[in-house]
Amino acid sequence: MHPIVRTVLQRLGLGLLTLFIVSIVIFSALEMLPGGFAEAILGQSATPETVAAFNKEIGLDRPAIVRYVEWIGGILQGDFGTSYAGAGGNIKRHVSDLIAPRLYNTFFLAIMAAVIAVPLALTLGVLAALYRNSLFDRIVNSVTLTTIALPEFFVAYVLMFFFAIKLRWFYSLSTVSESTTFLEHISRAALPAITLTLVIIAHMMRMTRAAIINLLASPYIEMAQLKGIPRRRVIVHHALPNAWAPIVTVVAFNLAYLVVGVVVVEVVFVYPGIGQMMVDAVSSRDMPVVQACALIFAATYILLNLSADIISIITNPRLLHPR
């Protein structure tokens, strides 16, 4: 079997195991939290009778083990179950129907931010390495480090103040729905995407710069320079290919962050992504939704890390042919 295929299969197997463990951890954590769905939804107006009626209807009166086994049995058949909210009468809200539009929005924003941030970070990183210790290098470094050091919500408020209130170029609210057109979606998501770009760019840029500078001390680079190859070509054609592995790992890490860690930006811009949904679901103890979100987040991490590893292997022939 080709070594890459074997690695992929191995990692996917381990990934499934991880997902299984995640589901147990999340389920038990939710069970340990005080209060249940009925108490959370009814709040101050909960009485023992209404809570009991509620729990009976959504099946929370049964033991935790039974509920978990039922749930995981459903997952294995591709059924994510129904949300506790809106359960009642003949109305069931399927978790997959609830999550699908939110997940689309989250991926839309993540991809939009990535499309801006990744090329920008790589270019800036390469240029910073090229003009190391110059004024340009210093400016790029300090600006990106400043934006990563500021809390996301602050960056968001500053952008909102200038671009939405003063200049009125973009919307301050990013509410989108299924009827939003693609172009409007882009303009609505512009400010959140720029915020996220500013937040993640420093990490990727610094890693690119460091990885390349690290390689510049290698003998083969010295050789290339002695041959009289222009500096720019040395970096892009000789140093960069060998620097991909650490860069890709950092990029994957940041992409995963774009999917799972943007709840603050979602709240500030009222963008209906999956983060807000998971927070709401946790605070109301809506177990099926929390579980589904947790699995999606874990799977995102696993898949992105796997692709990062595969890209590093492919870009490094030595890893392709291990002895």
Partner: peptide
């Protein structure tokens, strides 16, 4: 009716004319 839980965002929405 739009749910805007963050009070600064809610204020900005009013001052920018979105709500």
């Amino acid at each position: 009716t739009i749910s805007i839980k963050d009070v600064t965002a809610r204020t900005n929405a009013l001052t920018s004319g979105e709500t």
